[in-house]
Amino acid sequence: MASPLEDRLDWVVRQVGSIILGKERAIRLALSCLLARGHLLIEDLPGMGKTTLAHTLARCLGLHYQRIQFTSDLLPADILGAAVYERQRETFIFHPGPIFAQLILADEINRATPKTQSALLEAMEEGQVTIEGETRPLPEPFFVIATQNPAYQIGTFPLPESQLDRFLMRIELGYPDARAERLLLEGEDRREALARLPAGMTPAQLHEAQGRVAEVHVAPPLLDYLQALLNFSRESGRFRGGLSPRAGLALLRAARAWALLHRRGHVLPEDLQAVLPAVVGHRLHPGDDHLEQSAADLVGQLLNAVPLPA
């Protein structure tokens, strides 16, 4: 079953893990997200390694990487690019913005105004941008890893639900454990280590891996389970508005990628459960607004309430 592709993916996981210490699960989730052609939202406090993770992934996958720091005065043109008049040639020349890269790190996306946010989110949805009447395709592959600060921080514009829905996954990194943190403190500078990191994959290999994700087998009992989860979210009354069909498709894609990453040709319920918190955490809302329930609580309720089909 094992083939060079799986070995290479394992290698990527190991390499990223050597930079981001003690966060293998988050790394695998992020990688599954990219393999499933989805965009990733990382929500955490500043300084937890969000940027480093994005950067390392780009490096290991051999992707052209751009970082956009979102601020409250960032304008759509700052992302997409603009046509500038050049006097020598007496014409408007298009200067592409930072979005024309294979992997974008949209740092602190919720610091920008909704107008700017939506410019990025449109690009994410359609894989192309339209500037001054001209539609320009974005590079292939095209990933966005956005980071956002928790909503209670000052000066944030929270993403509306419809735009949150465009991210396949939302993950948190969290503090490293004591052992990982010790290694981090003892070790060399991350930036230097990152610079020495070789590219492990070509875009063509990544494309192949994405193709393999679609081939991962899904058996009818697994679909039964997935439908049971979706139904429960809709009919139990514990959630405000159940999971959409898009959420169901997202779950299935992410679970396929997760299975592939674990060298499996078929999806197990465990794969679905592994990606469930990341995929539906930002799509579920408590049925009773008075209850302060965290996303993890909500997903836990969903997970525990639905038995595996016999």
Binding site: L268, E270, A310
Partner: peptide, 27 residues
């Protein structure tokens, strides 16, 4: 297949190792 698995789970359940309803086989 399902019957064999249920027998396996039932035997473990009698030993206090019950599979919770949502627990996947590998887990």
């Amino acid at each position: 297949v399902a019957r064999s698995w249920q027998r396996f789970c039932a035997r473990l359940a009698r030993r206090g190792l019950a599979r919770s309803p949502h627990e996947g086989p590998l887990a």
